[in-house]
């Protein structure tokens, strides 16, 4: 309890007592190959959780199990239990389409639909029936674009193609598209790795602002980025979750030597 007073992050933890998502003993196989080995982790509300680790360490694979995007890969198989608000997301009663609306995703390469900016954002609310009419849809689109920090740049050209925007704008459009369906968790798979430093800074700012409303999980190769945006950091290596804790602790005082070696640039 003494910690609580010292650390505002732990105070937030205590306020949102139960984690948003929990994973227990999760392993992922591609055919015979084990890509993720026995990972247990809690994802907290109103937190940014960063997954770091060298290429091929299984962090992206694990991220994709959180909204069952791995289902689309025929050879992938998931073991263990993942819960969203204490509900097993791999249970047969869980509707995968609804799950992906609740746990949204932003991909490494900006992938707007080859449609207008408006249509890109309106698509999700439309297929989930979130807007009763055109006026309501307009409100949702504007709100989502504002939250993604893109509204002022595109408000006069909503009918233009989403693919005509710059890379950074496209990625913010994808974030607007993800938050338009009002998700509870947003998964980001190296969202800034294809962007220039200025666009990256915009995305990081955005992640900061979004944290108040969503649980955010971000996979990144960039350790400075993880340190800047996240409150909690998980270090993966060779499919194993090596260390998970507060970002400040991981970066200043890692318990494991592997974590220390990676953070100090010995390998990875």
């Amino acid at each position: 309890m003494a910690d609580m007073i010292q650390s505002p992050i732990q105070a937030a933890d205590a306020a949102a007592s139960s984690p948003k998502m929990t994973a227990r003993g999760v392993s992922v196989f591609y055919g015979e190959k084990k890509a993720v080995d026995d990972v247990s982790i809690d994802i907290h509300r109103e937190h940014v959780t960063a997954f770091i680790g060298p290429s091929g360490c299984g962090k992206s694979t694990f991220l994709r199990t959180l909204n069952r995007m791995n289902d689309t890969i025929g050879s992938a198989r998931v073991e263990g239990r993942i819960e969203l608000d204490s509900e097993d997301i791999y249970a047969s009663s869980m509707d995968v389409v609804q799950l992906r609306a609740r746990v949204g995703m932003v991909f490494q390469k900006p992938n707007p639909f080859p449609k207008s900016i408006f249509e890109n954002v309106a698509y999700g609310p439309r297929i989930h029936g979130l807007a009763a009419g055109k006026a309501e849809l307009d409100v949702i689109v504007e709100r989502s674009l504002r939250r993604a920090g893109l509204w002022d740049e595109v408000k006069d050209r909503l009918a233009e193609s989403g693919t005509a925007l710059s890379g950074g704008q496209q990625q913010r459009l994808c974030i607007a598209r993800a938050i338009a369906v009002d998700p509870e968790v947003i998964l980001m798979d190296e969202p800034a790795s294809a962007l220039d430093p200025i666009a990256t800074a915009r995305i990081e700012e955005l992640i900061h602002e979004l944290r108040g409303n969503y649980a955010i999980v971000i996979v990144t190769h960039n350790m400075q980025q993880a340190a800047r945006v996240s409150q909690r950091t998980a270090f993966f290596h060779l499919g194993v979750l090596v260390e998970y804790g507060e970002t400040s602790a991981i970066f200043t005082n890692p318990r494991e030597t592997r974590t220390k070696d990676y953070i100090t640039g010995r390998y990875g």
């Binding site: 995007m69 992906r100 609740r102 995703m105 992938n111 707007p112 698509y123 999700g124 598209r177």
Partner: peptide
């Protein structure tokens, strides 16, 4: 058709048939 378009649609909760017919 680039797989990223399929991912994008699936990622915001489009069903298989919506992915096929809309994108």
């Amino acid at each position: 058709v680039p797989p990223s378009i399929r991912d994008a649609a699936l990622g915001i909760g489009a069903s298989r048939i919506q992915v096929v017919f809309h994108h």
